[in-house]
Amino acid sequence: MQVLERREARAGDAADAGHDIRQLLADYAHALDDDRLEAWPDFFTEDGCYRLTTRENVAAGLPVGIILCHGRGMLRDRIAALRTANIYEPHWYTHVLGPASIDAEEGGWRVRSNFSVYRTFESGESMLYGAGRYLDRVSRTASGMRLRERTVVLDSRCIDVLTVIPV
């Protein structure tokens, strides 16, 4: 009886974790889509790593992709730069997320999910910016679920025009 309860409790934890992780992924996408970019670094742990790259670079094991940030400082610099320094035509994203598969590992979870991102420029046209997969490592911290690592793998090698807003 006790054993069963313990197992249920563990299943309950896992269900909670799954719920919280899915919420993290959705909140992340919605923050970017709603132009709440200053919140972006807060989805990561203090030393969290963000990497935007291509399927080709990942397959070849190459370290350089399109964006690489180590730690919230570099993440915040990205946002500060696009708000104050960089010059580009304003545009908006809509992320469409696929279901996440979640596997427990030491210290957290490995999570994989697919995405597509549509981008709308001043012209009013919406175009596919890109599609691919998020490869995440997530941990529960005192302030909730956070990304220790997010590798964004774009299927395409070609970026249309440019990338300013993170994916």
């Binding site: 370290p63 399109i66 025009v161 300013v164």
Partner: peptide, 26 residues
């Protein structure tokens, strides 16, 4: 290698110092 990899943030399609060239010519 690590420094070169980090500095790759400066240029390319999302380059902090160069991304403007993706749209300025357009």
């Amino acid at each position: 290698t690590e420094m070169r990899v980090r500095q790759s943030n400066l240029t390319g399609a999302a380059g902090l110092v160069a991304l403007e060239d993706g749209c300025i010519n357009e």
